[in-house]
Structure formats: C-alpha cells, structure tokens
Nucleic acid binder design. Structure first.
Lengths: 356, 356
DNA sequence: TTGAAAGCGCTAACAC
DNA sequence: GTGTTAGCGCTTTCAA
C-alpha cells in the first residue's frame, strides 16, 4: 500500500477537468459538448467525445444543478394515504408500476431521473410538504397524479414558482399541462357495450368526488344512457374507488325494486366488490349480472371471471408528462393541450346479454 | 411590476445564508444545527431552529452533496428485463411496490431519497451502466435486489469503490449487507404443510439459476422430504420463475407415471401456471391437486382458488436495507449479518388432503 | 463554542 | 469558436 497516503479519503471521481485535460481543451468546451451547445468545431468535439469515452466520464447531477439552472430531476407526486394503503393491503393496483414504466424510461432517454414522492392531498400541510420537496430537490418539473392535479393548493403553488408541471387525469382549464384520456367517452363506450348486449338497467358506481375524472365518467355514462332513452335516476350509486364503497354501491343497485342487470364500476376494487356481492346473492357473472371495470389492473385479468374493462393508458400518459416537462425545461414551445391519449375497451368474460 | 427588474430569472430560494442572517449567526452554526453537530449552545440552537421554521428553510440536496461527502441518496437497483417485462405484461407482481413501501418510507424518515434504476444483469455493460449511475448520483448506498446481489461484477465494483451496499435475498458469504428471509426454512415449511395434509408425491418447480435463493429453496424442500423418508428423484422440475416455465414444469410433474398430488412452485407466475395446467387436465384444485406459491402477490390472493403461499417480507427487507445503509453513511458500526427476516406461510384454499 | 476561508463540479456570462 | 471568471449552496478545515 505504499504511496496510498496520497489517496484522499473521498475518492475522486472523473470530473470535467480530467476530460478537459485529456482532450487539451478548456472546461467550457467540454461543457458545451456535453450540453450539445453551439460553437464547437467538429474536430474538437470529436476529441472531447473521445476523451469522455476513454475516461468513462458522466457528469454529476448535483454539480450540474449547482452550476446551472436545471436539476435533471422530475418529481412525481402521488397521494400518500391511498398509495400506502394500496401497497399495504396488496390491492393489486399497478398504477405506480405503470407510472414508473412510462416515466422512468422516458426520463432515462433524456438523462433525467424521476423521483417518486408521496404527499397528503387532504393535509393542511400539503404546501409545506411540497415546498420542502421542491427546496430539497429543485426538480425541473412535477408530475401530478389524481387527485393532486385537481388540488388548487398544489397547482397554485407550482404555478407561482414557475415550475412546469403536468396534471395526469385532470381537467384542461387550469395551468400546467393536462394529460388525460377521454373519460367521458370511455364511460360512454363501456355503457354502449352493455346497451348493445341488450342491457337497459345498467347501474353506475361513481369514483371519489376529489377526482374531476369521476364526474366526467358519470357524464359519459349518462349521455350514453340518455341516447338510448333510459332514465338513470335510480341507477347511480356514489362510491370512492374503494372495495367497501363498491360493496355498498352494488348492494344498493342490486337491491332496487327492479335490480340492475349490469354494473359499470369506476375502479377495479369496486368492480371486484360487485363480483363479490353478486356471488353472495347467488348471482352468476355474467349470466345474471354483467360487470365492467374502469381499471385494467392485473387482478381484474386474473379474477374469476376475468373482467371486461376500460384500459387507461397510464404508462403512456406518464411518458407524455415526462416528455413535455423535459421539453419545457429545454425551453421548447409546447403545443396547447389538453393532451388526450386513447383508452381501450377490453372485452373479457364478465359481460354478456342480460338474463331472460 | 415596478421594481421587478431586480428579480433574477432564477428565483432565489431560501438558503442557509438567509437563515444565518435571520438568526444572527454564521453559516457554519446553521450547518451545525442542521446536521445535529456538536458545539452549539442551546440558546443559539433555539434561535437557529426558529429561523429555519420561520423561513421554511430546507437544505438543497445538491448543495449538500457538493459541499460534503454525502448525497442523501440511496440507489435501488432492479433487473431491467424482468422488471420491464413484468410491468408491460401486467403480471401482477408487486415486488417494486413493496420495495417502494419499505425503502421510500424508511428513507423519508431520515431525509433520504431512494432512486430506482434498472440495470441489465446479463449485459456486458453492467459495469458501465452502474458506473454511470454512480457518477451521476453519487449515492450513499446501493440496494441490490435479486439477482444483482449475486452478480460479482456488480458487487465487486461497489466494494472496490467503497460504496456501502445491501444485498436483498442474497447469500451471506460476500461483501455488502446480506438481508434475507430463510428461504430454505420457508420451502421446508411449505413442504411440511403439504406432508401434514397427507401428500407424499410433492413436486417442486425451481426458480432461475441466476438466483442463489433458488438453490436454498430446493435444499429446504429436499430436506423436508428426506425427513419424511421420501425420495425426490423425479419430483423436481427446473423453472425460471416465468409462467411458461411453470407450464412446462407442471406438465412434467403431472405427466409422471405416478403423478404428483401437490406442486410447490418457486414463484407466483409458476403457481398460476400450475393452476392452469391442472384445469386443462380436468383436475380440480385443491381436490385433485394442491398448489403452493412462493410469492404472496395480489394475484395469488385474487385468483380462483386463492393460493396458499409463502409471504416474503419484501417491504421489511428493503426498509432494513435502507436503514443499514443510512446508518453506515452516518458512520455507525453495523452488527454482523446476515440479517434474516421472518417469512409467513399463509394457508388459503389451494391446499387440501390428497385425493383418495 | 463559534466564525472565516476554501473548495466541491459544474454552468452562465462575458472576454477574447 | 474558444477560454476565463465568478458563483451556485453547502460542508470541511482551520483559526479564533
């Protein structure tokens, strides 16, 4: 170990200086090459690139953030309570996974990282929590998932600080990039699928009021029903996406004087609940009752019977969010939204013609 | 907007300077308070804390990393191919979610963040990929999930750079903190559960050879069978955790001259495959065939019938990993491992006495 | 027990 | 086109 006294405690990594020395140019020139800046002759660029290759140089995010105006970080915000509850109960929802799939991979393409955080949308401290995360990380953009995109405390704070943000599954009439699927059209499509099978008593279980998309889905369902000349007065049950609320809603709809023959549920958990309630009442799905889910999560594919469902493009929406934010950080002009991504109606074995 | 010319383009956040000025002390004193350092009188500490509160100051991670020796970042590494394939196919595995649950929340307790990355364990570029992530982020520690913890290219690189790392589900005889459940004992427990029900022809489908825990599970199964005086010569099928390999393995085991009456599968996907193969052969579970899964993921709870399964403590293991790494970054002495966390055998409806 | 000075690795602004 | 300088917000080191 002779000579090792010279080795500093903090092992020095390859920095821009080493590259500059290796290529025989100034720091600034290396910086320009890294950032694809103008005013570098091709020959020099080659030399720098070669030096970077040779030394295996990768710039430090922290240093870039300190020197410059960007952090190469995107912050993805999810609702704390709902997310943790879902993880702990193992509810089988893959929202977060799909977000990672879309967001992480898109970030990686551009040298960005996506950092996941949980904040309490209902807490009085939302602003404090968010401020703290912003101060610690200085993200170049923030991705808001429902219901955060509909929370004015959050959107106003972000807007006032001029931090670009994207709202997934949230309305177009506000600051921030709106990225959505057409929830109304999706609900209408699901309803029409049931109408086409011959159903007329089609019940709808809504999502939580915190989510603007809950309303849009209800609107889509109502318009499809109205188009078929059916009154929906007694056919709507209020839910909040949870299994329990799905149980309540299903029982209400199946306990009507003239019970429903089909249930369109605004979440996978509520659809599963409908399945359970039906079974408890001796109803067979889809023979006696058709069920449609609004989430196409793994469990609705593996449950018995596999459920007909609307597939939300969560990964593509998150990828789009990341891309818009990165482009915004690059100073690009972004086309006006809302950015609407296509849904899919996936027909499986939980829907059939009504009994009789 | 008069006076706004003074506002810089880059909106200045609250920094340590502001806090120092507000409290009437030097930067250094504020830094000491933030870092819980020694040599600060209580009265002064109070003043600083009050100033921090008042201004809503939160230190910038990037600046702390630049100035000091730590980044307050932990890097969690997952296998790229397997993870992405799982996300895209919606296989219902909640490994990543459970890691986030355990890791993120533990990090948050200590002002740390966990950053998720995917690297290709089989690629020739593992080292390049990992080096790049290390250079960009300078994490204070790395969490390795299977099979990365068993990849010497990765562990050696980390060890040589003196970056603390934790290996989840990997063996104790190597550098890095080993965090595991007792895979052998778990396999034995599952086997004994089946033996107790009266089974003797118990088939086992192994996991991928890349994973050291695959071997340990096989060992546990074998020892339990040996204890019951049963020869396992024809009872072991090789799988790789995937559904397809589960189909193959199940078919082999059910196609034996004297077919198995129970299958212990090393993953949820393979257990599901066993269920499918059984159904295709007109076998009813658990009447004609018992099935035990080695993952307790949401789908094995929602499938029909819900599967008896070993529950791996993924969230607690990840939390432990994060905690050990953070303590290591704090310079604490860490007790010798391996750190073994308890598993659970959860009996559901897929296991019963053998036919006849 | 406190403060002052230096420097981390990079980018921005400007000079050449 | 290219290089020089200053400074980002902290921690470290050393002096007081």
């Amino acid at each position: 170990m002779a000579g090792d006294e010279i080795v500093s405690r903090r092992p020095r990594a390859v920095t821009i200086k080493h590259v500059a020395a290796e290529a025989g140019v100034s720091l600034q020139t290396v910086s320009r090459v890294i950032n694809d800046g103008p005013n570098v002759r091709d020959a020099i660029k080659q030399r720098v690139v070669a030096a970077i290759e040779k030394l295996g140089y990768v710039p430090s995010l922290a240093a870039r953030r300190m020197g410059g105006t960007r952090s190469y970080l995107l912050l993805a915000l999810n609702d704390r309570d709902r997310t943790i509850a879902g993880w702990q109960s193992g509810d089988g929802t893959d929202w977060v996974d799909q977000m990672l799939l879309g967001g992480m991979l898109k970030c990686a393409e551009h040298g960005y990282r996506m950092i996941f955080e949980l904040v309490d949308t209902h807490s009085l401290h939302v602003e404090r929590e968010l401020t703290a995360a912003l101060a610690a990380l200085h993200p170049d953009g923030v991705i808001l998932t429902p219901p955060h995109g509909d929370n004015p405390l959050i959107t106003r704070l972000l807007a006032s600080r001029h931090i670009p943000f994207a709202r997934i599954g949230s309305d177009g009439q506000a600051p921030g990039f709106a990225i959505q699927m057409d929830d109304a059209k999706a609900a209408a499509a699901a309803t029409e699928h049931l109408l086409l099978l011959g159903h007329r008593r089609i019940g709808f279980i809504t999502g939580s009021r915190d989510y603007s998309l809950s309303v849009k889905r209800l609107v889509g369902y109502r318009s499809a029903m109205r188009g078929a000349g059916i009154n929906t007065r007694d056919l709507v049950a209020e839910g909040d996406f949870t299994f329990e609320s799905g149980v309540k809603g299903s029982e209400a709809l199946l306990g009507l004087g003239e019970p429903v023959t089909a249930i369109l549920a605004s979440s996978d958990q509520m659809a599963l609940a409908a399945l359970n309630v039906a079974r408890a009442r001796g109803l067979e799905v889809p023979r006696d009752l058709s069920v449609v889910s609004f989430d196409d999560t793994p469990i609705v594919r593996f449950c018995a019977p596999p459920l007909t469902a609307i597939r939300q493009p969560i990964a593509p929406m998150t990828a789009t969010a990341a891309e818009l934010l990165i482009r915004a950080a690059n100073g690009d002009e972004i086309e006006d939204g809302p950015h609407v991504l296509p849904f899919e109606l996936i027909v499986r074995e939980s829907t059939a013609a009504p009994p009789r």
